[in-house]
């Protein structure tokens, strides 16, 4: 490849990098230069700070969650779509899909009235629906909301009990 083309390639790379940083700094969809991509540390995401103070703490220990589920003293919310819930869910979990949050507010309010600790989960560490759902609860003023970061994938991989909808 001629030297002038190599210089052109380098210029494209440098210019695009500068443009990317500039546009990212000005964009409302901008992300930090480093994200949270360690699945052992919890839900992975490009912008761990985007939920701000309304970010619910994460529950990263499936054994602890199993003890809580066994005690029955928690409100377990499955934020996945209805079809995923029907195919299998954590024991005692209630289906409140994130996409239908506003439509289900009445039944959600009834479930929250018992004032139990709330644990929200979705499919796994790469899914942010649980955090988005939990944030809505925190903003509504619900206390003691947590996110189970491993989600349904980790629970079933651990070989823990899974419930399925009859019929």
């Amino acid at each position: 490849m001629p030297y002038s083309h190599i210089k052109g390639v380098v210029l494209i790379l440098v210019l695009s990098f500068a443009l990317a940083l500039g546009v990212n700094a000005l964009s409302s969809e901008g992300i930090p230069l480093k994200g949270q991509w360690d699945p052992k540390a919890g839900v992975v995401m490009a912008d761990p700070g985007k939920f701000g103070e309304a970010r619910a703490p994460e529950l990263n220990n499936p054994l602890r969650l199993r003890r809580m589920v066994a005690s029955g003293k928690l409100l377990l919310i499955d934020a996945r779509p209805e079809m995923s819930y029907a195919q299998g869910h954590l024991p005692g979990a209630l289906s409140f899909p994130l996409h239908g949050f506003n439509e289900n507010l009445t039944s959600l309010g009834q479930a929250l009235a018992r004032e139990l600790p709330v644990v929200v989960y979705c499919s796994g560490v790469a899914c942010q629906d649980s955090h988005t759902f939990a944030r809505k609860l925190v903003v509504m003023g619900v206390k003691n909301v947590m996110v189970y970061s491993g989600g349904f994938d980790e629970w079933s991989e651990m070989g823990f009990q899974v419930e399925k909808d009859e019929g």
């Binding site: 940083l21 992300i31 230069l33």
Partner: peptide
């Protein structure tokens, strides 16, 4: 993991510029 965000920002601009 340390490169994912940087790549996500950079790659689209390399694509459009080229």
């Amino acid at each position: 993991g340390s490169l994912i965000n940087l790549l996500a920002l950079w790659v689209p601009f390399i694509e459009i510029l080229s």
